[in-house]
Design a protein around this nucleic acid. Structure first.
Lengths: 208, 208
DNA sequence: TATTGATACTTAACGTCGTTCATAATTGCA
DNA sequence: TGCAATTATGAACGACGTTAAGTATCAATA
Protein backbone atom coordinates (compact mmCIF):
# COMPACT_ATOMS: atom_id res chain seq x y z
CA UNK A 1 0.00 0.00 0.00
CA UNK A 2 2.89 2.40 -0.73
CA UNK A 3 0.72 4.23 -3.21
CA UNK A 4 -1.77 5.63 -0.75
CA UNK A 5 1.13 6.74 1.36
CA UNK A 6 2.81 8.51 -1.53
CA UNK A 7 -0.42 10.32 -2.34
CA UNK A 8 -0.71 11.23 1.27
CA UNK A 9 2.78 12.62 1.16
CA UNK A 10 2.09 14.58 -2.02
CA UNK A 11 -1.01 16.07 -0.53
CA UNK A 12 0.81 16.94 2.63
CA UNK A 13 3.49 18.53 0.49
CA UNK A 14 1.08 20.87 -1.22
CA UNK A 15 -0.37 21.73 2.15
CA UNK A 16 3.11 22.60 3.34
CA UNK A 17 3.75 24.78 0.33
CA UNK A 18 0.52 26.63 0.98
CA UNK A 19 1.35 27.11 4.63
CA UNK A 20 4.86 28.30 3.89
CA UNK A 21 3.79 30.74 1.22
CA UNK A 22 1.03 32.05 3.42
CA UNK A 23 3.44 32.26 6.32
CA UNK A 24 5.84 34.46 4.40
CA UNK A 25 3.09 36.75 3.18
CA UNK A 26 1.57 36.92 6.63
CA UNK A 27 4.79 37.63 8.43
CA UNK A 28 5.91 40.37 6.07
CA UNK A 29 2.65 41.92 4.93
CA UNK A 30 0.01 41.11 7.51
CA UNK A 31 -3.38 39.50 7.37
CA UNK A 32 -5.09 41.65 4.78
CA UNK A 33 -2.31 41.13 2.30
CA UNK A 34 -2.47 37.39 2.58
CA UNK A 35 -4.65 37.00 -0.47
CA UNK A 36 -5.80 33.61 -1.59
CA UNK A 37 -4.77 34.68 -5.07
CA UNK A 38 -1.35 35.79 -3.87
CA UNK A 39 -0.76 32.52 -2.07
CA UNK A 40 -1.89 30.62 -5.14
CA UNK A 41 0.47 32.63 -7.32
CA UNK A 42 3.37 31.94 -4.98
CA UNK A 43 2.93 28.18 -5.17
CA UNK A 44 1.83 28.19 -8.83
CA UNK A 45 -1.54 26.65 -8.25
CA UNK A 46 -4.98 28.03 -8.83
CA UNK A 47 -6.70 29.78 -5.91
CA UNK A 48 -9.39 27.11 -5.80
CA UNK A 49 -6.78 24.50 -4.98
CA UNK A 50 -6.17 26.05 -1.59
CA UNK A 51 -9.71 25.20 -0.65
CA UNK A 52 -8.92 21.51 -1.05
CA UNK A 53 -6.59 21.89 1.92
CA UNK A 54 -8.10 24.67 4.00
CA UNK A 55 -11.73 25.52 4.48
CA UNK A 56 -11.18 29.24 4.37
CA UNK A 57 -8.61 31.97 4.56
CA UNK A 58 -9.14 32.20 8.29
CA UNK A 59 -8.58 28.47 8.71
CA UNK A 60 -5.34 28.81 6.80
CA UNK A 61 -4.08 31.70 8.88
CA UNK A 62 -5.19 29.95 12.02
CA UNK A 63 -3.21 26.88 11.05
CA UNK A 64 -0.01 28.83 10.46
CA UNK A 65 -0.44 30.79 13.67
CA UNK A 66 -0.96 27.62 15.66
CA UNK A 67 2.21 26.21 14.16
CA UNK A 68 4.28 29.23 15.07
CA UNK A 69 2.85 29.53 18.53
CA UNK A 70 3.60 25.87 18.95
CA UNK A 71 7.20 26.63 18.14
CA UNK A 72 7.18 29.22 20.91
CA UNK A 73 5.71 26.81 23.40
CA UNK A 74 8.27 24.20 22.51
CA UNK A 75 11.14 26.64 22.78
CA UNK A 76 9.87 27.84 26.12
CA UNK A 77 9.54 24.36 27.52
CA UNK A 78 13.01 23.51 26.31
CA UNK A 79 14.56 26.53 27.98
CA UNK A 80 15.34 26.09 31.67
CA UNK A 81 12.66 27.88 33.61
CA UNK A 82 13.52 29.15 37.08
CA UNK A 83 12.33 27.00 39.94
CA UNK A 84 11.27 30.05 41.91
CA UNK A 85 7.74 30.74 40.73
CA UNK A 86 8.11 34.51 40.81
CA UNK A 87 11.29 34.41 38.78
CA UNK A 88 9.52 32.02 36.47
CA UNK A 89 6.67 34.44 35.92
CA UNK A 90 9.22 37.10 35.08
CA UNK A 91 10.89 34.82 32.56
CA UNK A 92 7.56 33.79 31.06
CA UNK A 93 6.51 37.39 30.69
CA UNK A 94 9.71 38.29 28.95
CA UNK A 95 9.45 35.36 26.56
CA UNK A 96 5.81 36.09 25.84
CA UNK A 97 6.53 39.73 25.10
CA UNK A 98 9.55 38.92 22.98
CA UNK A 99 7.53 36.54 20.85
CA UNK A 100 4.66 38.96 20.46
CA UNK A 101 6.87 41.85 19.49
CA UNK A 102 8.85 39.69 17.07
CA UNK A 103 5.67 38.34 15.46
CA UNK A 104 3.22 41.20 15.55
CA UNK A 105 0.97 39.82 12.85
CA UNK A 106 0.68 36.47 14.53
CA UNK A 107 0.05 38.13 17.83
CA UNK A 108 -2.54 40.45 16.40
CA UNK A 109 -4.46 37.64 14.77
CA UNK A 110 -4.39 35.44 17.84
CA UNK A 111 -4.97 37.96 20.60
CA UNK A 112 -6.35 41.12 19.12
CA UNK A 113 -9.04 40.17 16.65
CA UNK A 114 -12.45 38.60 17.12
CA UNK A 115 -12.54 35.82 14.56
CA UNK A 116 -14.51 32.63 14.52
CA UNK A 117 -11.42 30.57 15.11
CA UNK A 118 -11.57 31.44 18.79
CA UNK A 119 -14.15 28.75 19.16
CA UNK A 120 -11.06 26.57 19.51
CA UNK A 121 -9.28 28.97 21.85
CA UNK A 122 -10.65 27.02 24.74
CA UNK A 123 -9.28 23.65 23.76
CA UNK A 124 -6.30 22.53 25.76
CA UNK A 125 -3.85 22.53 22.90
CA UNK A 126 -4.62 25.96 21.54
CA UNK A 127 -1.85 28.52 21.92
CA UNK A 128 -3.74 30.68 24.40
CA UNK A 129 -4.60 27.67 26.52
CA UNK A 130 -1.05 26.35 26.49
CA UNK A 131 0.55 29.68 27.34
CA UNK A 132 -1.99 30.31 30.03
CA UNK A 133 -1.53 26.89 31.59
CA UNK A 134 2.19 27.48 32.16
CA UNK A 135 1.58 30.85 33.72
CA UNK A 136 -1.22 29.52 35.87
CA UNK A 137 0.97 26.76 37.25
CA UNK A 138 3.57 29.31 38.30
CA UNK A 139 0.85 31.32 40.01
CA UNK A 140 -0.35 28.26 41.88
CA UNK A 141 3.13 27.72 43.21
CA UNK A 142 3.64 31.38 44.00
CA UNK A 143 0.53 31.35 46.14
CA UNK A 144 1.37 28.02 47.72
CA UNK A 145 4.80 29.23 48.69
CA UNK A 146 3.49 32.44 50.13
CA UNK A 147 4.87 34.87 47.57
CA UNK A 148 1.40 35.97 46.58
CA UNK A 149 -1.53 36.39 48.93
CA UNK A 150 -4.13 33.65 48.92
CA UNK A 151 -6.45 34.55 46.11
CA UNK A 152 -8.36 33.22 43.13
CA UNK A 153 -5.64 31.63 41.01
CA UNK A 154 -7.28 32.62 37.77
CA UNK A 155 -7.80 36.17 38.91
CA UNK A 156 -4.11 36.54 39.62
CA UNK A 157 -3.18 34.80 36.38
CA UNK A 158 -5.46 37.06 34.42
CA UNK A 159 -3.98 40.13 36.04
CA UNK A 160 -0.54 39.05 34.98
CA UNK A 161 -1.58 37.98 31.52
CA UNK A 162 -3.48 41.18 30.86
CA UNK A 163 -0.61 43.32 32.10
CA UNK A 164 1.90 41.86 29.70
CA UNK A 165 -0.67 41.68 26.94
CA UNK A 166 -1.34 45.36 27.44
CA UNK A 167 2.24 46.33 26.79
CA UNK A 168 2.64 44.05 23.82
CA UNK A 169 -0.57 45.07 22.14
CA UNK A 170 -0.02 48.78 22.64
CA UNK A 171 3.44 48.61 21.15
CA UNK A 172 2.14 46.54 18.25
CA UNK A 173 -0.71 48.91 17.57
CA UNK A 174 1.03 52.25 17.83
CA UNK A 175 4.21 53.02 16.01
CA UNK A 176 6.69 54.75 18.34
CA UNK A 177 5.98 58.18 16.92
CA UNK A 178 2.25 57.60 17.26
CA UNK A 179 2.41 57.14 21.00
CA UNK A 180 0.84 60.08 22.75
CA UNK A 181 3.46 62.50 23.98
CA UNK A 182 6.36 60.07 24.29
CA UNK A 183 7.39 56.90 22.48
CA UNK A 184 7.40 53.71 24.53
CA UNK A 185 10.11 54.09 27.13
CA UNK A 186 12.98 51.65 27.00
CA UNK A 187 12.46 48.97 29.58
CA UNK A 188 8.70 49.37 29.50
CA UNK A 189 8.14 45.63 29.26
CA UNK A 190 10.42 44.94 32.20
CA UNK A 191 9.01 47.74 34.29
CA UNK A 192 5.47 46.65 33.58
CA UNK A 193 6.11 43.06 34.64
CA UNK A 194 7.94 44.31 37.69
CA UNK A 195 5.23 46.70 38.79
CA UNK A 196 2.54 44.06 38.49
CA UNK A 197 4.61 41.51 40.36
CA UNK A 198 5.44 43.98 43.11
CA UNK A 199 1.77 44.77 43.41
CA UNK A 200 0.98 41.09 43.95
CA UNK A 201 3.78 40.16 46.31
CA UNK A 202 2.83 40.03 49.95
CA UNK A 203 6.03 41.09 51.70
CA UNK A 204 7.75 43.28 49.22
CA UNK A 205 11.47 43.84 49.76
CA UNK A 206 12.30 40.51 51.36
CA UNK A 207 10.45 38.32 48.88
CA UNK A 208 11.26 39.87 45.53
CA UNK B 1 -26.41 85.97 2.87
CA UNK B 2 -29.05 83.61 4.32
CA UNK B 3 -28.87 81.34 1.33
CA UNK B 4 -25.27 80.26 1.72
CA UNK B 5 -25.98 79.61 5.35
CA UNK B 6 -28.98 77.47 4.59
CA UNK B 7 -26.95 75.46 2.13
CA UNK B 8 -24.26 75.13 4.73
CA UNK B 9 -26.83 73.87 7.18
CA UNK B 10 -28.24 71.40 4.68
CA UNK B 11 -24.79 70.07 3.95
CA UNK B 12 -24.03 69.78 7.62
CA UNK B 13 -27.33 67.98 8.02
CA UNK B 14 -26.45 65.30 5.52
CA UNK B 15 -23.09 64.91 7.19
CA UNK B 16 -24.88 64.37 10.47
CA UNK B 17 -27.18 61.79 8.95
CA UNK B 18 -24.19 59.92 7.57
CA UNK B 19 -22.41 60.03 10.89
CA UNK B 20 -25.47 58.88 12.80
CA UNK B 21 -26.26 56.06 10.44
CA UNK B 22 -22.65 54.94 10.45
CA UNK B 23 -22.57 55.25 14.21
CA UNK B 24 -25.50 52.90 14.64
CA UNK B 25 -24.09 50.36 12.26
CA UNK B 26 -20.69 50.62 13.86
CA UNK B 27 -21.91 50.31 17.39
CA UNK B 28 -24.11 47.32 16.74
CA UNK B 29 -22.30 45.48 13.98
CA UNK B 30 -18.67 46.56 14.05
CA UNK B 31 -16.28 47.97 11.53
CA UNK B 32 -16.54 45.39 8.77
CA UNK B 33 -20.29 45.69 8.67
CA UNK B 34 -20.20 49.43 8.26
CA UNK B 35 -20.55 49.27 4.53
CA UNK B 36 -20.63 52.41 2.46
CA UNK B 37 -23.59 50.88 0.69
CA UNK B 38 -25.35 50.09 3.96
CA UNK B 39 -24.83 53.60 5.26
CA UNK B 40 -26.11 54.98 1.97
CA UNK B 41 -29.19 52.78 2.17
CA UNK B 42 -29.90 53.90 5.71
CA UNK B 43 -29.94 57.57 4.78
CA UNK B 44 -31.50 56.97 1.35
CA UNK B 45 -28.68 58.45 -0.64
CA UNK B 46 -26.35 56.88 -3.11
CA UNK B 47 -23.03 55.49 -1.84
CA UNK B 48 -21.09 58.05 -3.85
CA UNK B 49 -22.70 60.85 -1.90
CA UNK B 50 -20.84 59.85 1.23
CA UNK B 51 -17.60 60.68 -0.52
CA UNK B 52 -18.73 64.30 -0.80
CA UNK B 53 -18.52 64.44 2.98
CA UNK B 54 -15.83 61.95 3.91
CA UNK B 55 -12.70 61.05 2.02
CA UNK B 56 -12.96 57.36 2.80
CA UNK B 57 -14.60 54.78 4.99
CA UNK B 58 -11.76 55.07 7.46
CA UNK B 59 -12.14 58.83 7.63
CA UNK B 60 -15.83 58.36 8.37
CA UNK B 61 -15.25 55.85 11.13
CA UNK B 62 -12.46 57.98 12.52
CA UNK B 63 -14.79 60.96 12.67
CA UNK B 64 -17.47 59.10 14.58
CA UNK B 65 -14.95 57.58 16.96
CA UNK B 66 -13.44 60.97 17.68
CA UNK B 67 -16.90 62.30 18.42
CA UNK B 68 -17.70 59.55 20.86
CA UNK B 69 -14.34 59.65 22.55
CA UNK B 70 -14.84 63.37 22.84
CA UNK B 71 -18.03 62.66 24.71
CA UNK B 72 -16.06 60.48 27.09
CA UNK B 73 -13.44 63.14 27.65
CA UNK B 74 -16.11 65.73 28.31
CA UNK B 75 -17.97 63.51 30.73
CA UNK B 76 -14.78 62.72 32.54
CA UNK B 77 -13.79 66.33 32.89
CA UNK B 78 -17.25 67.19 34.14
CA UNK B 79 -17.19 64.51 36.80
CA UNK B 80 -15.42 65.52 40.00
CA UNK B 81 -12.06 63.84 39.99
CA UNK B 82 -10.41 63.09 43.32
CA UNK B 83 -7.75 65.54 44.39
CA UNK B 84 -5.52 62.75 45.60
CA UNK B 85 -3.57 61.72 42.51
CA UNK B 86 -3.61 58.01 43.34
CA UNK B 87 -7.34 58.00 43.86
CA UNK B 88 -7.61 59.97 40.65
CA UNK B 89 -5.68 57.34 38.75
CA UNK B 90 -8.03 54.72 40.11
CA UNK B 91 -11.04 56.73 38.99
CA UNK B 92 -9.55 57.37 35.58
CA UNK B 93 -8.80 53.71 35.10
CA UNK B 94 -12.33 52.74 36.01
CA UNK B 95 -13.82 55.30 33.64
CA UNK B 96 -11.49 54.30 30.84
CA UNK B 97 -12.33 50.64 31.25
CA UNK B 98 -16.04 51.30 31.51
CA UNK B 99 -16.02 53.27 28.28
CA UNK B 100 -13.95 50.68 26.45
CA UNK B 101 -16.12 47.79 27.56
CA UNK B 102 -19.30 49.69 26.74
CA UNK B 103 -18.01 50.65 23.29
CA UNK B 104 -15.92 47.72 22.17
CA UNK B 105 -16.02 48.60 18.49
CA UNK B 106 -14.92 52.14 19.11
CA UNK B 107 -12.20 50.91 21.38
CA UNK B 108 -11.03 48.30 18.96
CA UNK B 109 -10.79 50.77 16.10
CA UNK B 110 -8.97 53.36 18.16
CA UNK B 111 -6.60 51.22 20.17
CA UNK B 112 -6.35 47.82 18.60
CA UNK B 113 -5.96 48.30 14.88
CA UNK B 114 -3.17 49.75 12.80
CA UNK B 115 -4.89 52.14 10.44
CA UNK B 116 -3.59 55.21 8.71
CA UNK B 117 -5.68 57.47 10.89
CA UNK B 118 -3.13 57.10 13.66
CA UNK B 119 -1.07 59.70 11.90
CA UNK B 120 -3.30 62.06 13.88
CA UNK B 121 -3.00 60.09 17.09
CA UNK B 122 -0.18 62.33 18.12
CA UNK B 123 -2.02 65.59 17.82
CA UNK B 124 -3.05 67.12 21.10
CA UNK B 125 -6.77 66.85 20.56
CA UNK B 126 -6.89 63.24 19.51
CA UNK B 127 -8.60 60.87 21.91
CA UNK B 128 -5.46 58.98 22.83
CA UNK B 129 -3.59 62.21 23.46
CA UNK B 130 -6.36 63.67 25.57
CA UNK B 131 -6.85 60.58 27.71
CA UNK B 132 -3.14 60.20 28.15
CA UNK B 133 -2.65 63.81 29.15
CA UNK B 134 -5.07 63.50 32.07
CA UNK B 135 -3.42 60.35 33.30
CA UNK B 136 0.02 61.82 32.92
CA UNK B 137 -0.87 64.84 35.00
CA UNK B 138 -2.02 62.59 37.82
CA UNK B 139 1.24 60.69 37.61
CA UNK B 140 3.21 63.93 37.82
CA UNK B 141 1.40 64.81 40.99
CA UNK B 142 1.72 61.32 42.42
CA UNK B 143 5.46 61.48 41.98
CA UNK B 144 5.70 65.03 43.29
CA UNK B 145 3.76 64.14 46.39
CA UNK B 146 5.87 61.10 47.04
CA UNK B 147 3.28 58.42 46.35
CA UNK B 148 5.33 57.04 43.52
CA UNK B 149 9.09 56.78 43.45
CA UNK B 150 10.91 59.38 41.37
CA UNK B 151 10.91 57.98 37.87
CA UNK B 152 10.36 58.80 34.21
CA UNK B 153 6.84 60.21 34.17
CA UNK B 154 6.03 58.70 30.81
CA UNK B 155 7.35 55.32 31.81
CA UNK B 156 5.01 55.23 34.78
CA UNK B 157 2.11 56.56 32.73
CA UNK B 158 2.70 53.94 30.09
CA UNK B 159 2.79 51.20 32.68
CA UNK B 160 -0.58 52.30 33.97
CA UNK B 161 -2.10 52.82 30.56
CA UNK B 162 -0.91 49.50 29.26
CA UNK B 163 -2.17 47.68 32.35
CA UNK B 164 -5.70 48.93 31.99
CA UNK B 165 -5.56 48.60 28.22
CA UNK B 166 -4.54 45.00 28.65
CA UNK B 167 -7.63 44.13 30.62
CA UNK B 168 -9.98 46.00 28.35
CA UNK B 169 -8.58 44.61 25.15
CA UNK B 170 -8.50 41.02 26.39
CA UNK B 171 -12.09 41.17 27.50
CA UNK B 172 -13.09 42.75 24.21
CA UNK B 173 -11.26 40.18 22.16
CA UNK B 174 -12.24 37.00 23.95
CA UNK B 175 -15.81 36.15 24.75
CA UNK B 176 -16.07 34.89 28.33
CA UNK B 177 -16.30 31.27 27.27
CA UNK B 178 -13.28 31.69 25.03
CA UNK B 179 -11.00 32.66 27.87
CA UNK B 180 -8.51 29.92 28.55
CA UNK B 181 -9.56 27.82 31.51
CA UNK B 182 -11.72 30.40 33.30
CA UNK B 183 -13.81 33.35 32.18
CA UNK B 184 -12.66 36.78 33.28
CA UNK B 185 -13.01 36.90 37.03
CA UNK B 186 -15.39 39.45 38.47
CA UNK B 187 -13.45 42.43 39.70
CA UNK B 188 -10.62 41.82 37.26
CA UNK B 189 -10.55 45.45 36.21
CA UNK B 190 -10.41 46.65 39.79
CA UNK B 191 -7.84 44.10 40.82
CA UNK B 192 -5.68 44.90 37.85
CA UNK B 193 -5.64 48.61 38.57
CA UNK B 194 -5.00 47.89 42.20
CA UNK B 195 -2.11 45.54 41.60
CA UNK B 196 -0.39 47.97 39.28
CA UNK B 197 -0.89 50.86 41.67
CA UNK B 198 0.38 48.85 44.60
CA UNK B 199 3.40 47.92 42.56
CA UNK B 200 4.17 51.58 41.95
CA UNK B 201 3.55 52.98 45.40
CA UNK B 202 6.62 53.56 47.52
CA UNK B 203 5.36 52.93 51.03
CA UNK B 204 2.50 50.54 50.59
CA UNK B 205 0.13 50.30 53.53
CA UNK B 206 0.45 53.87 54.77
CA UNK B 207 0.12 55.61 51.42
CA UNK B 208 -2.60 53.68 49.64
C1' DT C 1 -37.11 86.17 -18.02
C1' DA C 2 -33.56 83.43 -20.09
C1' DT C 3 -28.80 81.93 -19.47
C1' DT C 4 -24.94 80.65 -16.93
C1' DG C 5 -22.30 78.30 -13.56
C1' DA C 6 -21.75 76.02 -9.58
C1' DT C 7 -23.22 72.53 -6.48
C1' DA C 8 -25.48 68.11 -5.05
C1' DC C 9 -26.34 63.90 -6.47
C1' DT C 10 -26.63 59.48 -9.02
C1' DT C 11 -25.53 55.80 -12.23
C1' DA C 12 -22.44 52.76 -13.76
C1' DA C 13 -18.40 50.93 -13.64
C1' DC C 14 -13.44 49.38 -12.12
C1' DG C 15 -10.62 46.42 -9.63
C1' DT C 16 -10.26 43.81 -5.53
C1' DC C 17 -11.58 40.32 -2.40
C1' DG C 18 -13.22 35.36 -0.52
C1' DT C 19 -15.50 31.68 -2.20
C1' DT C 20 -17.99 28.09 -5.11
C1' DC C 21 -19.12 25.05 -8.83
C1' DA C 22 -19.13 22.66 -13.06
C1' DT C 23 -15.76 20.64 -15.63
C1' DA C 24 -11.48 18.68 -17.07
C1' DA C 25 -7.31 16.05 -16.29
C1' DT C 26 -4.78 12.55 -13.84
C1' DT C 27 -4.13 8.21 -11.72
C1' DG C 28 -4.67 3.78 -9.45
C1' DC C 29 -7.50 -0.28 -9.84
C1' DA C 30 -10.85 -3.97 -11.74
C1' DT D 1 -9.20 -1.16 -21.61
C1' DG D 2 -12.66 0.97 -19.01
C1' DC D 3 -14.21 2.80 -14.33
C1' DA D 4 -14.07 5.56 -10.20
C1' DA D 5 -11.98 8.60 -7.43
C1' DT D 6 -9.05 12.17 -6.51
C1' DT D 7 -6.87 16.60 -7.80
C1' DA D 8 -6.85 20.70 -10.18
C1' DT D 9 -8.75 24.43 -12.84
C1' DG D 10 -11.43 28.44 -15.19
C1' DA D 11 -15.00 31.10 -14.83
C1' DA D 12 -18.10 33.04 -12.32
C1' DC D 13 -20.85 35.14 -8.08
C1' DG D 14 -21.66 38.56 -4.93
C1' DA D 15 -19.75 42.00 -1.96
C1' DC D 16 -16.54 45.43 -1.03
C1' DG D 17 -14.24 50.53 -1.39
C1' DT D 18 -13.82 53.86 -4.59
C1' DT D 19 -14.10 56.88 -8.83
C1' DA D 20 -15.41 59.10 -13.23
C1' DA D 21 -18.87 60.87 -16.10
C1' DG D 22 -23.13 62.56 -16.45
C1' DT D 23 -27.62 64.75 -14.77
C1' DA D 24 -30.56 67.59 -12.12
C1' DT D 25 -31.20 71.58 -9.22
C1' DC D 26 -31.09 76.27 -8.21
C1' DA D 27 -29.16 80.87 -7.00
C1' DA D 28 -27.05 84.59 -9.45
C1' DT D 29 -26.35 87.26 -13.46
C1' DA D 30 -27.45 89.47 -18.16
Amino acid sequence: MGIAERKEREKEDVRRQILDAAHDLFETQGYENVTMRAVADAIEYSPATIYLHFASKDALVEALCFEDFGRLSAAMNRAPLPRNPVDRIRALGRAYAAFGLANPNHYRFMFMTAGDWKKHANEVDSPPARSYAVLRQAVVEAIDQGFFAKNDVDLVSQILWSAIHGVVSLVITFKPEQFPRAPPRPGLVEASIEATLQGLLVGREDKA
